[in-house]
Computed example of a mutant assay.
Amino acid sequence: MVTPEIKLLSAAEQERFDRLYAYTESVLAADRTGHSLDHINRVLANAVLLLHDTPAADTLTVVAAATLHDTYDDKLVDNVPAARRKTAAMLADQGFDQSSTAEILGIIDQMSYRYSLDHDVTLDLNGQLVQDADRLDAIGAIGIARTFYYGGAHGSQLYGGEVREHLSGAEYRHSSSVLNHFDEKLFKLVDQLNTPAAQKLGAHRQQVMRDFVAEFKAEVNGAK
């Protein structure tokens, strides 16, 4: 796949980004759960959009974290510590110093919804942009498609069961059904977006999901 050109980067930074992107492609090439390189490309596009409205953020840090954020996700790799070390080594190989590497890994470690269920954490500005960019790809029409794609890949029940509240990270990972995932997570994300630009985009995507779920439930119940 062609590496995206990030026009906010210098030529030297783009070269470093290209190698990070190639590494991510090698890790996620076989994914069939909605976390493939297509997802990374959309998150990157979201991140660049948010960067235009957030000049105080560091572009290279944001796009590096956005590119690498699934390279050691426990949903996708068997040995998270080993995969995390490989990602850290890749950053070091591309000239990221110890402080920059620690910041990027810290963003990745703490940005997920699951992590937020067990920890009270406030990300720095760079982390907020990466988190928003990723969460925008979890909602709206794309979010609907990814939810059913992931549920199908894992054999989840299509609908049914009780919607659960106040979940721990471990409880959240065991879905009651694909449809319940909207109430258990996706509808909550829009209120957790950090930046005004993401909140504006999120409001529209939230309505897309609510309309879909209302239609889905009406058809299941024979009302339409």
Rank of each mutant, 00 (worst) to 15 (best):
M111G: 00
T59S: 06
M90V: 10
D74V: 14
L60N: 04
Q94T: 05
V80A: 08
H69N: 02
E103Q: 15
Y115Q: 06
S100Y: 00
I104M: 02
R114Y: 11
A65N: 09
K86H: 14
P55E: 01
Q98F: 06
A92Y: 10
L68C: 02
T67N: 13
T59N: 02
Q94R: 06
P81V: 08
I107V: 15
V77T: 01
R114Q: 14
I108S: 00
L68Q: 03
D78S: 14
M111P: 04
T67S: 15
Q94K: 07
E103L: 14
T67I: 13
V77S: 00
D78V: 15
P81Y: 01
I108F: 01
D93Q: 14
D74K: 14
V80C: 11
I104K: 06
H69V: 10
Q94I: 11
R85T: 10
L51A: 10
T101I: 10
P55A: 08
I104A: 00
S100E: 15
V63P: 03
I104S: 00
A65I: 10
D109Y: 03
D58K: 12
N79H: 10
Y72T: 09
A64G: 01
E103I: 11
S100C: 06
A88R: 04
L68V: 04
L91R: 09
V80M: 05
L51E: 11
M111W: 00
D93W: 10
H69Y: 07
D97H: 01
L91D: 08
L76K: 01
A65D: 04
D74E: 15
D97S: 04
A102C: 05
T54K: 07
A57H: 03
R84A: 03
D74I: 15
T71V: 11
D70M: 12
T59F: 01
A102H: 08
R84I: 00
I104F: 01
E103H: 13
L51F: 02
G106A: 12
V80H: 08
Q110I: 02
D73C: 00
T61D: 08
A57N: 05
A89L: 12
A65E: 09
A56I: 13
A66M: 07
S112C: 14
H69R: 07
Q110W: 01
Y113V: 06
T54M: 09
T67D: 14
P55Y: 07
R84D: 04
R84K: 10
G106E: 10
H69C: 12
D70L: 08
D58P: 12
T71S: 08
A102I: 04
R85Q: 15
I108D: 00
P81T: 03
L51C: 03
A89S: 15
H52W: 05
A66T: 07
D78Q: 13
L60V: 13
H52P: 02
T101W: 11
D109G: 05
H69W: 06
I104Y: 01
M111H: 14
R84E: 09
L60K: 07
L51G: 02
L105D: 03
T61L: 11
L105C: 09
M90N: 03
L68M: 03
S112Y: 03
D109T: 06
H52N: 11
A56D: 12
A56V: 12
T101M: 13
D73Q: 00
T101A: 14
H69M: 13
